Computed example of a mutant assay.
Amino acid sequence: MPGSVPPKLPAVALPGWFADFLADRAIRKPSPHTSKAYRQDFEAIAVLMAGSTDAVAGLCIHELTKDRMRSAFAAYAETHSAASIRRCWSTWNTLCTFLFTAELLDANPMPLIGRPKVPKSLPKSYPASAVTDLVAAIDADHGSTRASDWSERDRAIVFTSLLAGLRADELLNANVGDIRRTNDGAILHVRGKGNKDRRLPIGPELLDVLDDYLRTRSNRFPQTRRRTSNTKAPSSFSPTAPLFVGADGDRITRGTLQYRILRAFKRAGINGERASGALVHGLRHTFATELANANVSVYTLMKLMGHESMVTSQRYVDGAGTETRSAAELNPLYGLLSDEKPPL
């Protein structure tokens, strides 16, 4: 009947060696969605190899040969998208690597199994050297007497993009009150695309950069400060005050935001390393790629990026070529903030 709930399919009995794999993965604390994906991807190929769902439990490790795996993946590819095939391939590659490491499988056959290429539209991230040069170009503005030069603000914008993955519109719409301190950093409330809010954990290093910027802002525009005994920089402003402002003290405009980043790219001599039109979005791509390289799960990456579908987030994992596990503070770009800060 229309609107009725489809019957729940019976669970497929698993062979013991796959149950051992799931137990090993469980130690790494994957998200429920990742664990579900492991099982779904396993069952999809295992059923094709075994011939039926009832025969999956009896599937033996020695049956995981190149020819049988290749035939199973060819059949799977007939009814699934390229993204699904790549994810399934990744699951089986992780599984076969586990079995090989445990000396239960003579060799991992997956490198010999074809898989769809990563789409050409895969977002381009910036290498660490380019990010370092970009930050250095911004810091070179410290002490400038030009009203338009504001290294602390530009630094805060760049690192908020790199370490929180905000879109340009999200940077423009952010308010001071969106930063909510915790015992070990802060939570940044982001009003995202399509009116979908998300909350991002940010480390104390990024919070320090934002505090430095807000202190200089208090000096530039003392009339915008609130009278308060609280020494924390965000508390000096109204919660509804814009987080990032221009040289006039008003909410920063899109043109100013893009120009300041473009200027930094040109001054750093790395303008040729960015895709055409990619400025803030290139920094956002770098945030996602670095987290994918740090083995953050697809589901967690989707939540941090504000994507509507895991398929979009999967592109970063495909580009990184790594297995997944969740954590938000693994972004190695935080290391750029461990160096001595420029004097105020």
Rank of each mutant, 00 (worst) to 15 (best):
P7F: 00
D339L: 01
L283S: 08
T256N: 13
T91F: 07
N219S: 13
M69V: 06
R68E: 02
R181F: 14
S235W: 01
A186S: 05
P332M: 04
W150M: 11
L112R: 11
A156F: 04
L22Y: 12
P222H: 07
H142I: 06
A13P: 07
G246P: 06
A46R: 10
V12S: 00
R86E: 10
L162M: 09
V317E: 12
N195K: 15
H189L: 10
D106L: 09
S151A: 15
P109H: 03
L163P: 02
K193V: 02
I252G: 00
R70W: 02
R167L: 05
L162F: 10
G321L: 10
R315D: 08
Q314A: 14
S71H: 13
R153C: 15
T286P: 14
C60Y: 03
N331L: 07
P111W: 15
I113L: 13
E308C: 03
G269S: 06
A55C: 09
N293W: 03
L99I: 03
S35G: 00
M310Y: 00
D139N: 05
L257G: 09
R284D: 05
L112E: 12
I27G: 01
A275F: 01
N331E: 09
Y259H: 11
G246R: 03
A50G: 14
L243F: 01
L262I: 01
T231M: 13
G185A: 05
Q223K: 05
A247S: 10
N295M: 05
R267S: 04
S81L: 08
A327D: 12
I157T: 08
R39I: 09
N293Q: 12
I27Y: 07
N175A: 08
